[in-house]
Write a protein that binds this DNA or RNA. Structure first.
Length: 508
RNA sequence: GAUCUUGUAGCUCAGCCGGUAGAGCAUUUGACUUUUAAUCAAAGGGUCUCGGGUUCGAAUCCCGACAGGAUCACCA
């Protein structure tokens, strides 16, 4: 791959540095005393002497030359600070090489440097570091995109090509300071969720990612192979069946925040690997779980936004208090006028045709109801709403409803038309569970390629006795999108999955 | 997987009624010891994603491939 003019210049600058005896990649510890944000916060005009002998390190992100002085900006993890370098300050004697050559010619934007000196405020009012010495820390061989911002906050030449931003997230993070906030918020969301669960003494656990049987969800898995065992394995599509085994083993509450893998299409809301949180608590039912979910989301939202509500897409979403509750059939009746209670498969198919919803022959009762719900109801559920009591057929791991024939005790939480959480009163009758799995096998024979596989060991575990319990799953990426007002899942993943680059950009 | 759409300099974009490329920033050279989208003067930089086709001639029109985005399908 031929080097661009700017890459050649930078390599040549590196060579010249080395010829001057300057190590462009030194080993020594950098005596950093402050973050730039700390310096700005602690600087006081009336007592500037409190901040002398300070040292910062970071990337050089802007240079403004003014003859025998240079203004530049150094960016560290906390932000940017202007530095002011006067030739006579760093080159006291006759030899002006350090200023004229090393700083002005051989140091490029993107290079890492450390500078020390004292803090002051410029004529223009900017808190700055007056440099008395500077050290080269690392040479950048490629030019960074230069994003400029004026004093009104207008951005010029933004680095905004999504392909480049996602493929080269390191560049994105370097030049687009604000995107870091989303990832910090994601981290805070997970930490606050963990803190909430830990405060209830529920145990965080880790379960296998390599599964001999793919179960716990309806999705197509990735396949892999273990050489020594010479056996096929799947990357997990869900961890539900393992977490339940742990409750069977005697824990009161277990949760796992981890990566799931589904071999399906990609879109602005689907990545092949995504992070889910699943929690199971013994002796609880789905009614209890609804209340717990309300508390959890109110807590998380408060941790992130200092209030229980968020503003998004022109709506104020309120996570405090009790959420609206509707059974799935009630919601369908509300938005389509059709009462599906007791309807046969053929009748449902007819309703789908009336509503102009595409159906095919592999779809059973559960799937047909789900199609109607997805097409007609979901998008209307803006404020947090629990949709409860789904058809038995589409939910093979949930307990039959205590009073409603043909339904299970399940809820899904919808916010802004999107599913955020999914929970059941878990099925703990092993005989019923076996029948449900067998029904899934029939669906699979009919051509439903997402039907669940039968897990013999899971049935065996349940046959030893499983306490009543409720389980909840939350998509962390989706929740982060909601909480951070991001439209695309790629904006909440550091490294979203991309097709391979065709240009041999990476190979040198 | 389907539909629509985009791909031009390191980055952001113009050029697209066909006549072999432009701007701003970045880069190079020079000036400037308080600048901040620094400024001023000058210069260099492109296999116009790739492959075909139409044409005397293609960045531009047509077909295909590759990659991205949006929407849909599926799901979390």
């Amino acid at each position: 791959m031929a080097l661009s003019e700017q890459e050649i210049v930078r390599r040549d600058n590196l060579r010249q540095l080395q010829e001057l005896g300057i190590n462009a990649f030194p080993h020594e510890l950098v005596p950093v005393t402050h973050l730039t944000a700390t310096l700005k916060a602690e600087y006081k005009d009336e007592a500037p002497e409190l901040l002398k002998d300070v040292c910062i390190a970071g990337r050089l992100m802007a240079i403004r030359e003014a003859g025998k002085a240079v203004f530049a900006e150094v960016q560290d993890s906390s932000g940017r600070l202007q530095i002011y370098v006067r030739r006579d300050d760093i080159c006291a004697g006759e030899d002006k090489t350090l200023f004229d050559k090393v700083l002005k010619k051989l140091t490029d934007i993107g290079d890492y440097i450390s500078v020390s000196g004292y803090m002051f405020r410029t004529k223009m009012g900017e808190i700055s570091l007056h440099v008395t010495s500077f050290t080269f820390l690392s040479k950048a061989l490629r030019p960074l995109p230069i994003v400029k911002k004026d004093k009104d906050g207008n951005i010029y030449d933004a680095f905004n090509n999504p392909e480049l931003r996602h493929r080269q997230r390191y560049v994105d993070l370097t030049v687009n300071a604000e995107i870091k906030k989303t990832f910090l918020m994601r981290n805070k969301l997970i930490r606050s969720m963990r803190a909430f669960f830990d405060s209830h003494d529920w145990l965080e656990v880790e379960t296998p990612i390599l599964h001999p049987v793919h179960g716990g969800a309806s999705a197509r898995p990735f396949s892999t192979h273990h050489n020594a065992l010479d056996m096929g394995l799947y990357l997990r599509i869900a961890n539900e069946l393992y977490l339940k085994r742990l409750i069977i083993g005697g824990f009161d509450g277990v949760y796992e925040i981890g990566r799931m893998f589904r071999n399906e299409g990609m879109s602005y809301k689907h990545n092949p690997e995504f992070t889910s949180m699943e929690i199971y608590v013994a002796y609880k039912d789905y009614v209890w779980m609804m209340a717990m979910t309300e508390e959890l989301l109110a807590y998380i939202c408060t941790q992130l936004h200092n209030r229980t509500a968020i503003e998004i897409e022109g709506h104020t979403i309120e996570f405090g208090g009790e959420y609206a509750k509707m059974s799935m059939f009630e919601s369908i009746e509300k938005y389509t006028g059709h009462d599906l209670t007791g309807k046969s498969e053929e009748e449902l198919r007819q309703i789908c045709r009336e509503l102009k919803i595409g159906v095919d022959n592999t779809m059973g009762v559960g799937k047909l109801v789900d199609e109607i719900f997805s097409a007609k109801v979901e998008k209307n559920l803006i404020q947090p709403t629990f949709i409860t009591d789904h058809p038995l057929e589409m939910t093979p791991l949930a307990k039959k409803h205590r009073s409603k024939e043909g339904l299970v005790e399940r809820f899904e939480l919808f916010v802004l038309g999107k599913e955020i959480a999914n929970a059941y009163t878990e099925l703990n009758d092993a005989i019923d569970q076996r029948e449900r799995f067998e029904h899934q096998l029939e669906l699979a024979k009919r051509g439903d390629d997402e039907a669940m596989a039968l897990d013999e060991d899971f049935l065996r575990a349940m046959e030893y006795g499983m306490p009543p319990m409720s389980g909840l799953g939350i998509g962390i990426d989706r929740l982060t999108m909601l909480m951070s007002n991001q439209h695309s899942i790629q904006e909440v993943l550091f490294f979203p999955q991309m097709r391979p680059e065709t240009k041999n950009e990476v190979t040198e």
